[in-house]
Design a protein around this nucleic acid. Sequence first.
DNA 1: GCTGATATCTTATGCCGTAAGGAGTTGTCG
DNA 2: CGACAACTCCTTACGGCATAAGATATCAGC
Lengths: 273, 273
Amino acid sequence: MVVYAGQGDARRSMALLWRSGEPNEARPGPKPGLSVDAIVDAAIEVADSEGMAALSMRRVGERLGRTGMALYTYVPGKGELIDLMYDRALAELPAEYDLSGGWRSALTAWAEQTLAFYLRHPWTLQVSQARPVLGPNEFAMLESLVAILRGTGLGPRRVRGMVALLFDFVRGAATTVAESRQVPSATGVSDEEWWQARASLLDEVAPGFADRFPLVRWVESDDSEPGGDEPYLEHRVSETFSVGLAVLLDGIEAAAARAAQNGNGGQAAPPST
Amino acid sequence: MVVYAGQGDARRSMALLWRSGEPNEARPGPKPGLSVDAIVDAAIEVADSEGMAALSMRRVGERLGRTGMALYTYVPGKGELIDLMYDRALAELPAEYDLSGGWRSALTAWAEQTLAFYLRHPWTLQVSQARPVLGPNEFAMLESLVAILRGTGLGPRRVRGMVALLFDFVRGAATTVAESRQVPSATGVSDEEWWQARASLLDEVAPGFADRFPLVRWVESDDSEPGGDEPYLEHRVSETFSVGLAVLLDGIEAAAARAAQNGNGGQAAPPST
DNA sequence: GCTGATATCTTATGCCGTAAGGAGTTGTCG
DNA sequence: CGACAACTCCTTACGGCATAAGATATCAGC
């Protein structure tokens, strides 16, 4: 399931994200044995290695030699912790891309880097996108993508559309790979074995299946290059990724060309559908 | 979080999905008071009205005047129930689209219908895509999309890429709207109010924000038509949706044109990147 | 030393999925 | 008819979760 951000005191969680309002030194009471950073790090370790489903306050506390409840001194709740984890992880992404080769090559690099990021931290795919975390690194990520798309000469409305499209695309591909990787680890069965078992079950349970869905059969027929040592589904996804990226780049180029023709940044020109 | 399908006895859950191996009549024991269909219907009602997070075995049982445990007579577990819900809901989608106007208009209709479906049943967005449910209606959905894309003359590999791209796009847009709709219902604050509150908090907590991210400011600047009575974010998404769809259609057209030129269904022709 | 703020722990509440086993119902066979 | 087996449904219980409430220990400044 999608994990939602904390609804609690919005001011406090924003302050945590932007590290503002740090406590002054020399306060009464025992020295803090932990820190927000240490907690976020431990939580990311848990999520990276065992997945979002295994992330619990107790689990994180345990890794720090504390109980789960000890974390509530530093962080308002689990939702806010996830926001912090997410924004921290995003810091890994490049702040800018080489634009000297034009926007197409920069966008390709962006897509590859971003895909790799999601695969390094698959749990980030489960952080809600609609109510953005609004942390510094999320803005930086957006800034760097918009910097590339500015090269197309399109206006803000068009660029917003492409930002969404690009993120949906990369996140979708990453989600497929990330979830497929859980099959072997969760079931002890290789990806390919899982698919073959399912396919033979299909024949058994749904006779005449192939005749009912001839186009499914056609589209699954294999006209691709062999996948080397990549697992079955990951090979499929990497093909899909390059095909999809090519479509996106061509579509963006078409929009940019139309806008250049009209000389208006694509703002007033209606799509030629 | 993403909800994973049941790992249990695969044969049994496939049989449930395809409704094969129905029990013969005249068995000993009390007459079944429930049925798989009744349970799936009740579960869909819960998920539609209260969201996936509120879906629990006890909750569904309660709606049927039973305990949660009673459901285990009919359904192996929660994961399998979700699979059944998903495939049942997919039956709402059109089995075919009007191809007489060409693939562009059919694809536009597909995107709109599919988006509307996800918004009617937002919980379907949380069913894992990598290990497909493999129920009859999931195949039917794929079949109808491939039928449209065949009109482009592209080969299976290219069409697979576009299928993934199109689903990622529509699901991404649907996810954004679906999650944004939970803000008002969960917090009692309108979408727009939520955003304004966040924005003023940003100023407070991150001074100099606008200078740090000038392109974010630029891309968020409003060059769009007024949104009528649509909520803020939904208006943004519907703009984004039409921009994205136009890009996709143009990109697909470019691929199709290149393939037609080479006369090979786009199979051997390398992408011109 | 006292006061009051702070960090941490223990305990408890109310959810969850589901394992285990018992009670009641109904068909078939002797 | 009675016995048995299959079947539905229930109660209880376990171990997990987030987190509220409150007890206890630690420390700075007066």
